[in-house]
Write a protein that binds this DNA or RNA. Structure first.
Lengths: 197, 197
DNA sequence: ATTATCTATAGATCTATAGATAATGC
DNA sequence: ATTATCTATAGATCTATAGATAATGC
């Protein structure tokens, strides 16, 4: 189908360019949100970072909220945690990796903090995300330990604690990286869950 | 000293009135910050809640930042945690109490989240607060268990975990109160720290 | 022809200052 | 006389819409 081919290859080029631009914008948005939060991030600040005017940016994302939604959807990175294939002893390494990317952690933490306020466009996203993350964590814990962890908890009781430790440590670490050994603390917690060794 | 007396009683009345007004404003600010965060909170919204114009409010607090500082200083409530007199088994009850005051928890959590962004006026406050809270928690743990907790951790290693659990659970609970038993989870964690019983 | 980007601009806000007026307490 | 509050307003922003112009790819 030459016609179809021409069409789709044309489109492919166009969307490739467009996707590139969108990706640039999303990267910039991620940075600006890390620095100022979503409410404090202006479209103009994001646009400037990719050499566009604010109105030029709105060609790619029709509203500020659409931009945030795209940022949230893009970032399965911060959903890299779960999946039934996961092994618990990878968690320490994952946190070590996060500790090398303070920007991402800061964007995530700023958005999570804002999301508890009323009418925040990320609220539903985070609510659903935590439902899923708790379930996945419980699965991972069950795969590792069965119905009862060495520490005595069921996977379902341990999961929210594990998630809370990860999130809570991020705030302490972002505020005072020198004072908090985030990966070390996570490993401490895993040992606590898993019994003496 | 009749003169001194008259002076101070006059002042006492004035400051009493003024303090009352300031307290009203701080309460309103707490609410508005819970709903919209600090950056999203407008002076006009706070003022309206106490029946003032925005300019009238600025008579009591000269800038928006001064208002936030006053809010943070006022709230030793969220610093009610530490002190060497504390007993660890009160923590569950404290969290139970917090679970009945979602407004306060939400204000705290929204501010903590925002505070990791650049140039946020609460950043230094939270950084210092966590240094102190970790130290106090370590002391409390040491008073209870000595140099080594039953779970195997030192007080200094356990303290950031305990604090992280408290903060992290608050976000999960604020987003989905039905799904998260915050006081129960805290008690689970305390048992984990303290060994089987 | 379509897509990307720009200029112009409307319409809301927002913080903060200046200065007038009312209320309070000697 | 001091304190509390108000009106008026400056000066910045901010998001979003309308419509023109440039670039891209048939």
């Amino acid at each position: 189908m030459p016609y179809g081919d021409r069409m789709s290859s044309t489109r492919a080029v166009r969307t490739a360019r467009s996707h590139e631009r969108r990706a640039e914008i999303l990267r910039a948005a991620l940075e600006v949100i890390a620095e100022r939060g979503y409410r404090g991030a202006s479209l103009a600040a994001v646009a400037e970072r990719v050499g566009l005017t604010q109105q030029g940016l709105l060609h790619h994302f029709p509203t500020k909220e659409a931009l945030l939604v795209a940022v949230l959807e893009e970032r399965d990175q911060w959903d890299a945690v779960p999946s039934s294939q996961w092994r618990l002893d990878l968690l320490g390494s994952l946190v070590e990796y996060n500790a090398m990317r303070p920007g991402i952690v800061q964007t995530f933490s700023a958005l999570l903090g804002e999301s508890v306020t009323e009418g925040h466009p990320a609220r539903e996203f985070f609510t659903q995300r935590y439902v899923g993350v708790r379930e996945s964590m419980a699965e991972v814990l069950r795969a590792e330990y069965g119905e009862r962890l060495p520490g005595g908890l069921t996977p379902e009781r341990a999961a929210p604690l594990l998630v809370a430790v990860l999130d809570g440590l991020q705030y302490q670490w972002l505020l005072d990286p020198e004072a908090v050994d985030m990966p070390g603390a996570v490993r401490d917690f895993l040992e606590l869950l898993g019994g003496e060794g």
